[in-house]
Structures are given as structure tokens and as C-alpha cells.
């Protein structure tokens, strides 16, 4: 029961409820006021990659990571799916459609569903090809090796890494660099973000990783959650300051 929860869990629950409340409020606000376009690094970076892909008639390679249910169950492993969907809608009829690689069985199936759904939604189911969303190695090393092997293809326009990945993904980023392929990394793990920074890529950090899709697709739900995210961040900052003051004042143990 609730009483058995630790202080950490209670705090987490409170934050979760606050987040939900903020999300609902922002949804209502957005319903009344149309969303405005705010240029953001995350969106700009992804859009640029998409433009490169469209203009050059080349393929965009998306790495969705290798951990959704493989080891620990981590929803951040699915953060690339929404981005993939948003990109797909914009590049369905490109010369080379978006190609995605997943290192997890569930992720691969979800990714394939997203690809199929996008084509079906555009009434172009006949263009759907199963190879557009492939399973690659199910361990992080095998996944990276598989992805890096695909990068040198001359018909690739760019590399987008979105999801849970280990720092070994640096190999794929290096491969992209060697083949003059622009890369964006939106990796949901800390060590992966560090690797993304060290590699030659536009690196998204922190919550930016989850923002790219919202900024790109401009869906109300995504935009509302972005605003709610900001509110929650402010709340947490105030909470941390208060906690520090109370701790210094001896109120908190």
C-alpha cells in the first residue's frame, strides 16, 4: 500500500502526479491556443538530416538501440520509435526510404509496425518492404557491428541514433565520420550520450533526447508534454532548492 512506500517512492509518485497534471493542463491550453513554432536544436538537427536525405535522394539510417526488453525493461529504449515515425511520414516517397535497425526483438517488431503503419496510412502499402526495419545484433557489441557495417553504403545520407545504446556506439559514429555521413545521436543513456559527444555527431543530451520528435512532428500531445516537462523541471528545481535550504537549516535529517 501507499504507506509502505519509501520516501523516495513517495517523492516519485508525487512528481509523477504533478507531471500528469501539468500534461493535462498543457493539453487543455494547447487546445485553446494553436501551438507556435519554436526552433530548437533537436528539431533543427533532425530536420537538417531529413533535408539532406530528401535533397540528395539518399537513405537515412536510423539506429533504434538494442535495449527495450533485452536485459532490463526500459521504456527509454523505445524513444527512437516516435522519432522514426515522424521521420517516416516525411520521407515515405523519397528515393530511398528510411532504414531502421533495432537490436531487440520487441523493438524490431514495433519498428516494423511503425513502418508498415506509415505506408498504410499513406495508402501506399505496396511500397512497404520488410527490410526497411531490420533486427540487428541483440547485444550491444553485435548491434554496433551490424550498424557500422551498413553505414559505408554510398546511398546513405545520414545516421540518426535514437534509443538506448552503449558507449560502444562510438564505432558506428566513427564509421559515419569516415564516410562523411552526418550523424545525430539522441541516446537515452548517460554513457551513450558521452560517446555521442566524443564522436563526430550532433549530440542531444538530457531531455532533448525525447524532445526531437515533439519538435519535429508538432503534435499537440508531444508539444503539451514538452511544456509539461518544462514545468516539471521548474518544480524539481524549486524542490531541490527548498530541500537544500531545509537540510542546511537542520529541518531535514
Amino acid at each position: 500500500m501507499l504507506s509502505t512506500l519509501t520516501l523516495n517512492d513517495q517523492l516519485a509518485l508525487a512528481l509523477g502526479l504533478a507531471g500528469l497534471l501539468f500534461l493535462l493542463i498543457n493539453l487543455l491550453l494547447l487546445k485553446r491556443n494553436p501551438p507556435k513554432h519554436i526552433p530548437e536544436p533537436a528539431k533543427e538537427a533532425v530536420e537538417n538530416l531529413l533535408h539532406v536525405s530528401s535533397e540528395q535522394g539518399k537513405r537515412l539510417v536510423v539506429g533504434l538501440g538494442q535495449n527495450l526488453t533485452n536485459a532490463s525493461f526500459d521504456l527509454s529504449g523505445a524513444s527512437g520509435l516516435s522519432l522514426q515515425r515522424a521521420l517516416l511520414k516525411r520521407s515515405l516517397f523519397n528515393d530511398h526510404p528510411l532504414q531502421s535497425f533495432s537490436g531487440d526483438g520487441v523493438l524490431a517488431c514495433l519498428s516494423r509496425m511503425a513502418v508498415h503503419g506509415a505506408y498504410r496510412g499513406a495508402l501506399a502499402s505496396e511500397l512497404f518492404d520488410g527490410s526497411l526495419s531490420q533486427l540487428s545484433g541483440t547485444s550491444h557489441m553485435a548491434y554496433t557491428a551490424s550498424l557500422a557495417n551498413y553505414i559505408p553504403d554510398t546511398s546513405n545520407a545520414g545516421l540518426l541514433l535514437a534509443g538506448q545504446m552503449s558507449p560502444v556506439i562510438l564505432l558506428a559514429l566513427d564509421q559515419a565520420d569516415r564516410h562523411s555521413l552526418p550523424a545525430i545521436s539522441a541516446i537515452a543513456s548517460l554513457s551513450g550520450q558521452a560517446a555521442g559527444f566524443f564522436g563526430s555527431s550532433v549530440n542531444l543530451m538530457g531531455e532533448d533526447v525525447f524532445n526531437a520528435e515533439g519538435k519535429l512532428a508538432q503534435r499537440k500531445a508531444s508539444l503539451a508534454s514538452l511544456s509539461a516537462q518544462d514545468w516539471l523541471r521548474i518544480t524539481i528545481s524549486i524542490g531541490l532548492l527548498l530541500g537544500a535550504i531545509l537540510k542546511m537549516g537542520g529541518v531535514l535529517p
Binding site: E44, S180, L181
Partner: peptide, 24 residues
């Protein structure tokens, strides 16, 4: 709306466009 935004962006040079990369 996506189509509209795509058409709107047609030919627009977005900020922060990555320069052509040179291989290391």
C-alpha cells in the same frame, strides 16, 4: 498539416545546417 509544413519548408535554409563534412 504535415504536408503544409513540408511545403512551407521547401527551399528554406534552416539554421544550423551542417556544413559538408570532410572525411577524417
Amino acid at each position: 498539416s504535415l504536408l503544409a509544413s513540408l511545403i512551407e519548408q521547401e527551399g528554406r535554409v534552416t539554421a544550423g545546417k551542417q556544413p559538408a563534412r570532410k572525411p577524417s
